[in-house]
Design a protein around this nucleic acid. Structure first.
Lengths: 103, 103
DNA sequence: GTTTATCATAAACCATGGCTTATGATAAGG
DNA sequence: CCTTATCATAAGCCATGGTTTATGATAAAC
């Protein structure tokens, strides 16, 4: 399941901040590191986790790496969300039906 | 931000499984523990995290506690998701506009 | 009131994970 | 080439977190 890694990747606040920056505009690693109070290796590591979760894509541009959002990751999360939501809805309906029958 | 705790709560696979069980049908703690290969205290702890994240609600029923889904938590995640998605969309459009101007 | 059942909390243990400083790899520029 | 810039990886450190066993608290049952 793809949403497994995606959820884990977004669990850390700093990593989620990195993802939000990349979502708002494609950026280089150095650029991201400059906007956050963490070192460059830390940013690289966060991006690696996001990359393996299918949330971002790296585009080599000269010596630097431009990171941009990968729509598939967010789509996976949305899928899980919708499925869980629907299950909850069915549960509510089933519960209501039973109460009705018990009258 | 409410989605902060919600994301962290769903980052663990086992805890996410607990949440899925509760979503599919309200259950007691013992019931959940019986369906998972972990101890009862572990389940209680997971439920506590989910509860503090606004993802589930506890309903005392006699000596047992019935847990059910709390729609607010999922709604919070969806809000973050939509917002991030929209930001990414704006970024794509902006990028495209710039390329057009550069012609 | 004394069990019995159900759940929460505490303590302890171990694994995971995020961060830093160093180091290596690759690509552009003089 | 040699330097410089940019990024990834490695090693090590410390904090967080998930799990278990043990224990306490509360509510029903007899």
């Amino acid at each position: 399941m793809a949403y497994d890694k995606a959820f884990a990747a977004l669990s850390d606040p700093t990593r989620r901040k990195v993802f939000e920056l990349v979502s708002a505009r494609p950026r280089s690693v150095a650029r991201i590191a400059g906007e956050l109070p963490i070192s460059q290796p830390a940013v690289s590591h966060h991006l690696k986790v996001l990359r393996e979760a299918g949330l971002v894509i790296a585009e080599p541009k000269g010596a630097s790496n431009i990171y941009r959002i990968d729509p598939q990751g967010l789509a996976a999360i949305r899928t899980w969300l919708d499925r869980t939501w629907e299950a909850a809805l069915d549960a509510f309906q089933a519960e209501f039906s039973i109460e009705k029958e018990e009258k």
